[in-house]
């Protein structure tokens, strides 16, 4: 058996330096990462990277920052298992392996000039934030912008300050709801995110909806969006699957004939509505 060094392997990783780490909640931690020589990640909103620790493994993680933020990018990691747990022990100055960006993100060129409705539930804010900030940074290129957010309790809301700043903008319509709240002083919405949709006034023909949340959220949100007459190909969702390679080979992420990692993770509802096993 002979061994040769490969310089063009898809599995090579870049050394990502953690330049900022912040514990956001008990189980979610944010990392800001820069690549060697200040190289830009050059991603589209909605894409993901494979983040790895030698000896532990790799995990697909959404890029949470907008491509308009140069020189570094952000990820948010929920601690659920082997790799994510090990990542939580990492801090500023540590190095992680980065492959990517991978997948098809949001079609920003197509979105230009149109009205937008963002719907994020739970951890869905992490990838959607990339597109929201992209749109806000290029605000005049888009029509009306609506942001609807949902999470379990007010304490679970990620990016509190940033969300606050969105809510205060005059060029953005904003609403938020929580599943439950024990705090008697809380006077916001309580209930599922689906309840916020009927109240939004929009022109369905020129509205694109971008939806990201836990699997069960999609079905119900999409029903509400269809009731608003938003065309199926203007509803964009991002799907999560088990991913090992990120490049359309290992088969883990397959949704019928789609590779979620390569053909997605962002799909139009039109693409997947007839695919059983998709939603």
């Amino acid at each position: 058996m002979k061994t040769a060094k490969l310089t063009d392997s898809e599995y090579l990783v870049k050394a990502g330096k953690i330049i900022r780490a912040r514990q956001m909640t008990k189980i979610e931690k944010l990392f800001e990462i820069s690549l060697p020589g200040g190289e830009s990640l050059d991603h589209e909103p909605g894409q993901f990277v494979m983040v790895s620790i030698p000896g532990v493994g790799e995990a697909p993680l959404s890029i949470s920052s907008s491509p308009t933020k140069r020189g570094s990018f952000e990820i948010v990691v929920r601690n659920v298992g082997k790799v994510t747990n090990a990542l939580h022990k990492f801090d500023t100055g540590d190095t992680v392996g980065i492959r990517g960006p991978f997948g098809k993100g949001f079609p920003v060129q197509i979105l230009e000039g149109n009205d937008l409705l963002f719907v994020a539930g739970g951890l869905g804010i992490v990838p959607l934030r990339s597109l929201i900030n992209f749109v806000i940074d290029n605000r005049r290129d888009f029509g009306k912008v609506n942001i609807l957010l949902g999470c379990k309790t007010p304490q679970d809301m990620l990016f509190g300050e940033e969300v606050d700043s969105w809510s205060k903008r005059l060029d953005v319509n904003f609403d938020i709801t929580v599943d439950r709240c024990e705090d008697p002083d809380y006077n916001g919405n309580i209930g599922l995110i689906t309840k916020l949709i009927p109240g939004v006034t929009l022109d369905p023909e020129r509205t694109f909806a971008a939806v990201i949340g836990p699997p069960i959220m999609y079905k119900f949100v999409i029903i509400e969006l269809l009731k608003k007459n938003i065309p199926e190909r203007q509803i964009l969702v991002s799907l999560e699957r088990h991913m090992k390679c990120g490049i359309g080979k290992c088969g883990h992420c397959q949704i019928q004939n789609y590779y979620c990692c390569k053909d997605g993770p962002v799909f139009t509802y039109d693409q997947i509505k007839d695919k059983k096993e998709a939603l």
Binding site: T3, A4, K5, L6, Y11, G97
Partner: peptide, 11 residues
Amino acid sequence: AGTLEALLEYE
């Protein structure tokens, strides 16, 4: 050593 290399084993 902070190194990571891609390799090919072949025969």
